[in-house]
């Protein structure tokens, strides 16, 4: 167990210290007094556990493939940007573009997140990203989404119908699962609502269970409600927009 005090440390020095600790074999790292330092966990490939006490800065876990990061507090923008694997658990709220172009691993957030969550998230074979948000998302959730699963639990609001504009705009793959009903006016043009199948539930059950365990949430309460599934209407949304020059 290695403890790093990040108080007044420039991000470059902090990240150097994290890399040094990982390279010298530490598998448990705690970072205290984090005040917005960028790029924590950037490009780390080792299966280390990092506890962050404080508020990590932008691009937490960018290009990461393996570590588990626990944030005991809120987080900022670009969490899990282009992340390939590993786990990020945020015991609070997070900012914009969470999980941008993420292609593997899991992100669990207790509270709300900002705009464009999971934009351009994609999956390929065994790489299958899963993002579970406890609260609500900003507009354009799942924009351009091409794969993976985004689950929005909306646990803390009084309103029964989920309302966030442009859900899944430009989406052409993957699934968005929302607990409760979704206001049909808030859907993007390229998506449709279908009923959640048993196999979809099986696919995410294990992760929902893990989510509830990690964040101390009552699993049975979560599973009591109905879920809505949002998928893209086609995997080629812009097929008819363009014409090939050669087809006369």
């Amino acid at each position: 167990m290695k403890t790093i005090d990040a108080n007044k440390l420039y991000y470059k020095i902090l990240n150097d210290q994290i890399h040094d600790a990982v390279d010298s074999g530490y598998r448990n790292i705690a970072i205290n007094n984090v005040y917005g330092q960028y790029y924590i966990g950037d490009g780390l490939m080792q299966p280390v556990k990092i506890d962050i006490n404080g508020i990590p800065g932008n691009d937490l876990g960018i290009f990461m493939d393996g570590p588990s990061i626990y944030v005991h507090g809120d987080a900022q923008d670009g969490i899990g940007n282009t992340m390939s694997g590993g786990k990020i658990v945020i015991d609070g709220n997070a900012g914009d573009v969470l999980g941008y172009s993420m292609r593997g691993g899991r992100i669990y957030v207790r509270g709300n997140v900002g705009y464009r969550t999971c934009i351009h998230m994609k999956s390929y074979k065994d790489d299958f990203p899963i993002v579970i948000i406890g609260g609500r998302t900003g507009e354009f959730a799942g924009e351009y989404m091409a794969g993976g699963v985004l689950v929005i639990l909306d646990l803390f609001s009084e309103i029964n119908t989920y309302d966030c504009n442009f859900i899944g705009a430009g989406m052409h793959g993957g699934i968005i699962i929302v607990r409760g009903k979704v206001n049909s006016d808030s859907l993007g043009r390229e998506v449709k609502v279908t009923s959640l199948l048993q196999e979809d539930l099986l696919q995410i059950k294990e992760y929902l269970f893990e989510y509830c365990q990690e964040l101390n949430i009552n699993y049975n309460n979560v599973m009591k409600s109905r879920f809505t599934k949002i998928i893209s209407a086609t995997n080629r949304p812009y097929k008819n927009l363009y014409i090939d020059g050669f087809l006369h």
Partner: peptide, 21 residues
């Protein structure tokens, strides 16, 4: 191509106009 780009075969590979970050 789907292997190199890491997307399913036969789907459009759309790059958004801006980097959204």
């Amino acid at each position: 191509i789907s292997q190199a780009r890491m997307i399913p075969k036969g789907t459009d590979a759309l790059s958004p106009a801006p980097h959204h970050d």
